[in-house]
C-alpha cells in the first residue's frame, strides 16, 4: 500500500507541520495580540504583510526565500536551501496568516471589560493574558493550530523551490504525489492523495464542530 519512501515522506511532513505550527503559535500569539490591540497608524501595513502569503503564488515566496537562504545569498556556505531547516523557515512564512488571523480575531472579540476587571483584581498584564485572554480565546487557538498544521501539510510550491525533493529529508507528501504522477504511478498517488483528503476533511470537521460560534478564515 505505502512504500518506505511514502512513509518517510509522511514522517517528514508531520515533523515539518508540527514544528512549523509550534513556532507559529509562539511568534504568532504576541503578534496577533499586538495587532488586535494597537492603534498604531502603521498597523494596516503589518496586517497586509502577514496576509501576503494568502494571495502570493507560493513559488514567488519560495523564489525569494531561495535567493535569501541559498548559497549565493547572505548566508553563503551556511546555505539553508535544500535542508529541513530551510523548509521550516519557508513554512513559517507561508502559514503565518493561517495562525495569526484566527488569533487576532479571537483576541479582538474579547470584551475590554474582562481585561479591565482582571486589572482591578490585581492581575498584571502578563497574568491577565494567560489567565483571562488565553482561556477566552481558546476557540481561536484551536482554529489557528489546526489551520496552521493542515496548511503546512498541504504546501507544495514553497517546498519545491527551497527544499527540493530529497527523500527522508525534504521530500514531503505533496511532492511524493507529484513524483508518483510524473512516474505514472497513479495507484500510489491515489493512496496518498485520498489519505490527505480524508485527513484534511477530518481536521476541518473538528475545527468547525468545536468552534460552531467561531468564524474560520478562508484561504
Amino acid at each position: 500500500m505505502f512504500t518506505d519512501a511514502d512513509i518517510a515522506a509522511l514522517l517528514v511532513t508531520l515533523k515539518l507541520a508540527g514544528l512549523t505550527t509550534l513556532i507559529l503559535l509562539v511568534i504568532g500569539t504576541p503578534l496577533a495580540w499586538w495587532l488586535a490591540r494597537t492603534r498604531w497608524r502603521g498597523k494596516p501595513a503589518i496586517e497586509a504583510l502577514v496576509a501576503l502569503p494568502l494571495v502570493l503564488p507560493p513559488t514567488v515566496l519560495g523564489f525569494y526565500l531561495l535567493v535569501l537562504l541559498g548559497a549565493n545569498g547572505p548566508l553563503g556556505e551556511h546555505s539553508l536551501a535544500f535542508t529541513f531547516t530551510g523548509l521550516v523557515i519557508g513554512s513559517v512564512f507561508y502559514s503565518l496568516p493561517f495562525v495569526v488571523q484566527p488569533l487576532q480575531g479571537a483576541f479582538a472579540a474579547i470584551d475590554r471589560g474582562y481585561i479591565e476587571a482582571a486589572a482591578t483584581l490585581r492581575a498584571s498584564p502578563r497574568d491577565t493574558f494567560f489567565s483571562v485572554v488565553v482561556p477566552l480565546a481558546r476557540p481561536g487557538f484551536l482554529t489557528a493550530t489546526v489551520l496552521g498544521f493542515a496548511h503546512t501539510v498541504g504546501e507544495f510550491g514553497v517546498v519545491l523551490m527551497i527544499g527540493g525533493n530529497i527523500p527522508g529529508s525534504t521530500q514531503v507528501l505533496s511532492i511524493a504525489i507529484y513524483e508518483h504522477v510524473e512516474n505514472l504511478e497513479y495507484a500510489r498517488a491515489h493512496w496518498i492523495s485520498a489519505g490527505l483528503l480524508v485527513m484534511s476533511f477530518a481536521l476541518l470537521l473538528m475545527v468547525y464542530g468545536l468552534n460552531r460560534r467561531f468564524k474560520v478564515v478562508g484561504p
Partner: peptide, 30 residues
C-alpha cells in the same frame, strides 16, 4: 500607578464576571 497596583475593588455596572470560570473560580481569582 497601573490599575493592578492600586488597592481598589471595582464593581462594574454590568458585573463583568469571567465567563470561563465558575462563581468560586471568579472569587478565587481575586
Amino acid at each position: 500607578l497601573l490599575p493592578h497596583q492600586r488597592p481598589v475593588g471595582y464593581v462594574f455596572q454590568h458585573a463583568v464576571l469571567f465567563p470561563h470560570l465558575s462563581v468560586r473560580g471568579n472569587l478565587d481569582f481575586a
